[in-house]
């Protein structure tokens, strides 16, 4: 197993947010920020050990264990319909959605749950999946549940359209695409990975392999800002407004 980068080791259970060297990028809302701060995210987004540059600060790097799922993972498996009574725009229900993330996966095929029983968030920072990830329903609860559970990026072979758009619009998770077909099959749940958005690569430290990602392009800064509204305000497309 290849050694994880030094900064990752330095990231403690309290998360990079409280590690002074990491300027935290503003998210869309106060409760989203609070959610990230408050909850135990053992594998939270961290920064590489390299010297800070302007480019680095706008190109997030995520490091931690990955959770691997198969092809055509539909949104019913990501968040079963019985939990859709939870309203994502309400802070307490947002957190609850996170605790149910991926609870629709068949237990036989996925013996390890994404969120451990009794926990509100997941230990997995990165989700790795096959083609057509997020197919099915337009429920925005799907990317929200993954983000609320603490996942920062999905690395899949391809996406269903609405899931991709909802991920970007909410800024909940980076929907990243693998450049090579089938690469996702080489990852196993629990492998330690680093996802470098700026370099468009995912490194699997457990297997020692590196995978190219398709550049996320204009969608990257939108996710970085915390969704379309935050991005539009940040860039002056719409007037900034004191949002609660």
């Amino acid at each position: 197993m290849a050694a994880p980068p030094p900064a990752a080791a330095a990231t403690t259970r309290t998360g990079a947010l409280t590690v002074g060297l990491s300027p935290y990028t503003a998210r869309t809302s106060a409760f989203r920020r609070a959610q990230i701060c408050r909850h135990r995210l053992p594998t939270l987004r961290c920064r590489r050990a390299q010297p800070l540059t302007a480019a680095a600060s706008s190109s997030p790097v995520f490091h931690g264990e990955c959770f691997v799922v198969g092809e055509n993972i539909d949104t019913d498996q990501i968040i079963p319909a019985e939990h859709l009574t939870l309203v994502p725009s309400k802070a307490d229900e947002y957190r609850k959605l996170g605790s149910f993330a991926f609870s629709g996966l068949p237990s036989a095929a996925y013996p390890t749950p994404f969120v451990a029983p009794g926990e509100e968030s997941s230990r997995y920072a990165v989700i790795v999946g096959g083609p057509n990830f997020g197919c099915g329903s337009s429920r925005e609860h799907a990317p929200v549940a993954l983000g609320a559970a603490g996942a920062r990026a999905v690395v899949a072979e391809s996406y269903a359209r609405i899931f991709f758009r909802n991920s970007v619009a909410t800024g909940e998770v980076y929907p990243l695409e693998l450049a090579e077909a089938g690469a996702w099959k080489e990852c196993k749940t629990g492998d330690i990975v680093t996802v470098d958005i700026g370099k468009a690569v995912m490194i699997n430290h457990t297997s020692g392999k590196e995978y190219k990602l398709k550049p996320i392009g204009d969608a990257g800064p939108v996710v970085e800002a915390g969704g379309i509204f935050a991005y539009a305000r940040k860039t002056g497309m719409i007037a900034s407004k004191a949002s609660a």
Partner: peptide, 13 residues
């Protein structure tokens, strides 16, 4: 199912 969340976002933004 999605209206309350949509309304929440509309009000907030």
């Amino acid at each position: 199912v999605c209206g309350p969340g949509t309304i929440g976002i509309f009000k907030k933004e």
